[in-house]
């Protein structure tokens, strides 16, 4: 088990290293950073001076190592637009995104798993068909469109829910729902199909044979086996919620890192882009690691190998 965790941890670190390279190189691919920073009024002398000041005169690998060293110490540089440290800006925005992603993830699990179980247990009934419709819609409809439609319905027409900004619990309902729908739909379908497989097994039959009540047969014996594939998927979903949050945060004017990233891209604010992308990458790696450990916990056949 310890070896298993160690291997996964090493893989995570390698992933982050590769990501940091990609992020670093990308800032050089879109043009000369010094030229961009200098603006239209700079002279040739200013340009040379600036290059020296920020280390652009050194070879690229050396620049990367300097960049990496700074990142490891938590220094992503200063935003040329706002003059603020990119780390501080990131930290300011991160809680909003984590809260939204967390709420969406909880919603995904709390609604998705029971809905998947019910669809399987009540297979081919009206309940199953409604679940299928809900799932297909969730996968097919683009989230920004769904967001706009819901804002229209619950905000503009019914006036029941706030439609922008961060605030009380009611502010979370719409963005969290829209953000979670795609992943939730995936979970519903996945749990349904793995549940159907599991309900057909001999051990579920034997659980009934030995006189267990149906509730225990389904929620103990069948469910624990059925969530194993859903677990991997839900880890990816959680990580994907961060990416998905870019569109959602823009539509709902949510003050998180998704919107920060978009602003950064629009303004070519490289320290902000780098900080945001690396933070998202770190989150992804950590979530994958946690999922792998949970996976081993739920599935004893992995734990002992």
């Amino acid at each position: 088990m310890q070896r298993y965790i160690l291997v996964r941890l090493t893989q995570g670190v390698i992933t982050l290293l590769v990501l940091s390279m990609a992020v670093f190189v990308s800032s050089h691919l879109t043009g000369d950073p010094a030229l961009y920073l200098l603006g239209a009024e700079g002279t040739q002398e200013d340009y040379e001076q600036l290059k020296k000041n920020i280390g652009l005169d050194k070879p690229l690998p050396v620049q990367y190592l300097v960049f990496l060293g700074n990142v490891v110490r938590g220094d992503f540089g200063t935003s040329p637009i706002t003059g603020q440290s990119a780390r501080d800006t990131l930290m300011e925005r991160l809680p909003a995104t984590l809260e939204l992603a967390g709420a969406a993830f909880l919603l995904t699990l709390i609604v998705g798993i029971p809905l998947g179980v019910l669809s399987a247990v009540k297979r081919d009934t009206i309940f199953d068909h409604i679940g299928k419709f809900f799932a297909v819609l969730g996968i097919a409809a683009p989230s920004f469109w769904v967001a706009i439609m819901l804002i229209l319905l619950f905000g503009a027409i019914l006036g029941w829910l706030p439609t922008f900004g961060r605030g009380g619990i009611d502010h979370y309902i719409l963005p969290a729902f829209v953000l979670s729908w795609g992943g939730m739909a995936g979970i519903v379908r996945l749990v349904r199909s793995s549940m159907l497989d599991v309900l057909d097994t001999e051990y579920v039959k034997f659980a009934r044979v030995k006189g267990l009540p149906e509730r225990m047969v389904i929620y103990k014996h069948a469910l624990k086996n059925a969530v194993i594939p859903a677990l991997t998927f839900s880890g990816l979903t959680l990580a994907g919620l961060l990416n998905g949050s870019v569109a959602i945060e823009v539509v709902f004017a949510w003050p998180g890192i998704g919107r920060l990233l978009l602003q950064g891209i629009n303004q070519r604010d490289f320290p902000i882009i780098q900080a945001t992308v690396l933070a998202a990458g770190l989150f992804y790696v950590v979530v994958s690691l946690v999922v792998d450990i949970l996976y081993a916990y739920v599935n004893p056949r992995i734990r002992y190998e």
């Binding site: 001999e202 051990y203 034997f206 044979v209 030995k210 624990k224 194993i228 739920v298 004893p300």
Partner: peptide, 14 residues
Amino acid sequence: CMILQDPMTSLNPV
């Protein structure tokens, strides 16, 4: 009560 055919799959693996 009943004993099923396949001992490899009659017990829940988890």
